[in-house]
């Protein structure tokens, strides 16, 4: 398991300039959660309606460097289950782009 110093060197996937309040802990939590990914991995992030969601993706801006989806308040997991299913199906059919492998 990497230590904090090593983690701080990993790729930043969540950029500044969002509208979260100064001093809010949520953006920092997001930043650290995303460090669970390897630098060469790509993620799809499903976000429920809420402060984090409305403050980090205001059209036409986004703070998310990975793919990100928001649909409604109560269904972030259900939405993501569909995305995961599509990923599995496209992989099985060999329809994924070469840049996406795992």
């Amino acid at each position: 398991m990497p230590n904090l110093k090593e983690l701080s060197k990993k790729k930043v996937r969540f950029t500044g300039g969002h509208r979260m309040c100064a001093g809010c802990g949520a953006p920092m939590v997001v930043n650290w959660i995303l460090k669970a990914l390897d630098d060469d991995e790509r993620a799809v992030i499903s976000n429920a309606t809420g402060c984090l969601e409305v403050s980090t993706c205001l059209y036409p801006y986004t703070s998310w460097k990975d793919s990100w989806v928001h649909t409604a308040f109560e269904n972030a997991a259900a939405t993501c289950s569909g995305t995961e299913a599509a990923f599995k199906a496209l992989k099985k059919k060999d329809l994924l782009m070469e840049s996406i492998s795992s």
Binding site: V44, V54, P60, K65, S67, M97
Partner: peptide
């Protein structure tokens, strides 16, 4: 597409200007 060539954000907050 979320699983496409480039990452994309879908379902943004869309205020009166857009």
């Amino acid at each position: 597409a979320l699983i496409g060539q480039d990452p994309v954000s879908m379902g943004p907050l869309d205020l009166p200007n857009h």
